[in-house]
Each structure stands twice: as structure tokens, then as C-alpha cells.
């Protein structure tokens, strides 16, 4: 949302006005119509879910298909919330995502700083070993990790779900690359004033790294919130399940009650959609900045 939000009237009056980049020509009218149509098409599944969720249950299976009901109701939402498990899964997801994000940030920032700014014996090969970990798909590890969690007594615990997600070599790589670009002069100045390495990291490096920290934090949080495979493997107790796992696998949770199913989907979609609505710019630049994918 850069400087393109010039007054709308400008577009109407056409080339006479100076500021607007976009002039209304038949071409741009078509462009805008196509863009709006594509966006609506892309939103259609979500709109359909909302439309279904406010129908009385009996109307959801009516043929022919209708988008809008004459008798909108919040009955489906009330039933879903009354069951309670959805809120429980949401709370689990929130706890685990916060845990994963906080730990990832602390561990990866420390490691990236150590690799970028300190010299110690074995630094080169240790970093090479860490970077090689980027190649290991987490999906390969589910079987041995589950056995390991069993031995450690961490099955069906928050720690068991969270800890394996904390190991993110890619984030160490991204952060180190950023720290490398911070001129040593800044740190030298602080060091001259008697600051130790931890102090330099905290009061010199971190304040200069806010964008990359936000990017790593957002990316990690969204990833942990939506992670499916490992939480799915690591939980057997429905009370410990995260939102994607509980919602996706608890059989017959909502049976053939489509209004309730869609109400559950809408409620589950809301937290991150709302966050995305408010922090669109940060999230867009953050994810484009880190540029990696599960």
C-alpha cells in the first residue's frame, strides 16, 4: 500500500490530472475488471464456507444449490462452540506456536550471531553441518523422532510437539546472512565502550535487525500454527491435539452437518485471517523476505 492511494476522483478525470499513474482507458478498465473477478473467484471457497455456515442445517443439502439463505442463523456456530474441543485445539495451537516461535528466535539468533561475528575453533565445519540440515526434509524424520519421543516420555506433551520444530537451520542461515552485512565498525564502537558480546548483540545488532527478526518470527509462527504432520504423529490424545490435527482427523466431529462443519472451519480460519488483515504489509514483506517453504 505504497503511495498509490491517490484520490479516487483522479482516475475519473483521466489524463488531465497529474498524479495518478493509472489512467482510465478501455484497457485498464478491462484490467481492473479481470483483477476483481479473479480475486472474487479466489475468495469464493471462503465465501461459500461462510454462506453455508449461516444456513439452517436442513437447507445445506437442498438442491439446487443456493448461495444465500432466507433464514440466516448462528445456530451452527453456537453448537460448535458449545462442544468446546475447537477452542481447546486453538489454545493448544497458540501455546505451541508461541513456544516454537520464541525458542526458534532465541536459539537461531544466538547461533547466527556466533557464526557471523565470533571466531572459534571449528566454526567453519560446524556451520557447514548446520546448513546441510536444510536438505533434510522433516517428513523423513517422523518415524525415528516418534520413537525418540517415546523414549524421552514426550509423546502427547507440548514440548514433544514443539521441540522438533525449533530446529530451523534455514533460519540460522537467513539470520547469519543478515548479520554478516552489519559493518563491524558498529560493534567495535560498542566494544570500545566495554560492552561484552551479549551486550553488543542485544543493544547493537538486534535493534538493527528488526525487519529480519519480524520476518523470521512471522514465518515461524505461521508455520507452527499450520504444521500438520509432526503434531499429527506426536499426539494421540484428542485433548493435546493442535487445531489442524483435531479439526482434520477427529472422525465424525461434525458428522454430516455441513453448517456446523463450515462454522468450525470459519472459526478456525479466523485467528490468522484477522492477524493477516491487520499486519498485511509486515507479513507480505516478511514471507517474501525469508523466502522458504515447508
Amino acid at each position: 500500500m505504497a503511495a498509490t492511494t491517490t484520490p479516487r476522483a483522479g482516475a475519473r478525470t483521466g489524463p488531465a490530472r497529474r498524479a495518478p499513474r493509472i489512467r482510465v482507458t478501455p484497457g485498464s478498465a478491462v484490467l481492473y475488471a479481470v483483477a476483481a473477478a479473479c480475486a472474487l473467484l479466489w475468495l469464493a471457497p471462503l465465501l461459500w464456507a461462510v454462506a453455508t455456515s449461516v444456513k439452517p442445517e436442513a437447507e445445506t443439502t437442498a438442491v439446487p444449490v443456493r448461495w444465500l439463505t432466507d433464514n440466516p442463523t448462528t445456530q451452527a456456530y453456537a453448537s460448535v462452540l458449545a462442544r468446546g474441543d475447537l477452542l481447546r485445539w486453538m489454545a493448544n495451537s497458540a501455546i505451541i506456536s508461541v513456544l516454537v516461535t520464541a525458542l526458534t528466535l532465541v536459539l537461531c539468533v544466538l547461533a547466527a550471531y556466533g557464526f557471523a561475528k565470533c571466531r572459534f575453533p571449528g566454526r567453519g565445519w560446524l556451520f557447514a553441518v548446520v546448513v546441510a540440515g536444510i536438505l533434510v526434509p522433516p517428513q523423513v524424520l517422523i518415524v525415528p523422532l516418534f520413537a525418540q519421543m517415546g523414549l524421552m516420555g514426550l509423546v502427547d506433551t507440548y514440548w514433544g510437539i514443539a521441540l522438533p520444530q525449533v530446529v530451523a537451520p534455514v533460519m540460522v542461515f537467513v539470520l547469519k546472512r543478515f548479520f554478516d552485512g552489519i559493518p563491524a565498525a558498529y560493534e567495535d564502537a560498542a566494544r570500545m565502550d566495554g560492552a561484552g558480546p551479549l551486550r553488543v548483540l542485544w543493544s547493537v545488532v538486534l535493534p538493527m535487525s528488526r525487519p529480519v527478526l519480524a520476518a523470521v518470527g512471522i514465518f515461524t509462527f505461521v508455520g507452527a500454527w499450520n504444521n500438520f504432520l509432526w503434531p499429527f504423529v506426536a499426539t494421540t490424545d484428542p485433548a493435546m491435539m493442535t487445531l489442524p490435527v483435531g479439526l482434520g482427523t477427529v472422525q465424525g466431529a461434525y458428522g454430516l452437518q455441513y453448517a456446523q462443519t463450515m462454522a468450525a472451519a470459519v472459526i478456525s480460519a479466523l485467528p490468522l485471517l484477522v492477524v493477516f488483515l491487520f499486519f498485511q504489509r509486515q507479513i507480505v514483506s516478511g514471507i517474501a523476505g525469508v523466502g522458504i517453504k515447508g
Binding site: 479473479c38 464456507a49 499450520n226 479439526l247 478456525s268 493477516f276 498485511q280
Partner: peptide, 19 residues
Amino acid sequence: LRFAFFAPFVLPVAVVTLI
């Protein structure tokens, strides 16, 4: 447009598959 095109990506997989 950014909202419409990117919103599905922030949905948990189970929401996507239910819908």
C-alpha cells in the same frame, strides 16, 4: 488483491480440506 490471493495460504490445512 493481496488479501484475496494470499489469504488461503494462512489457513490451516484442515480448514482447506473441510471446505
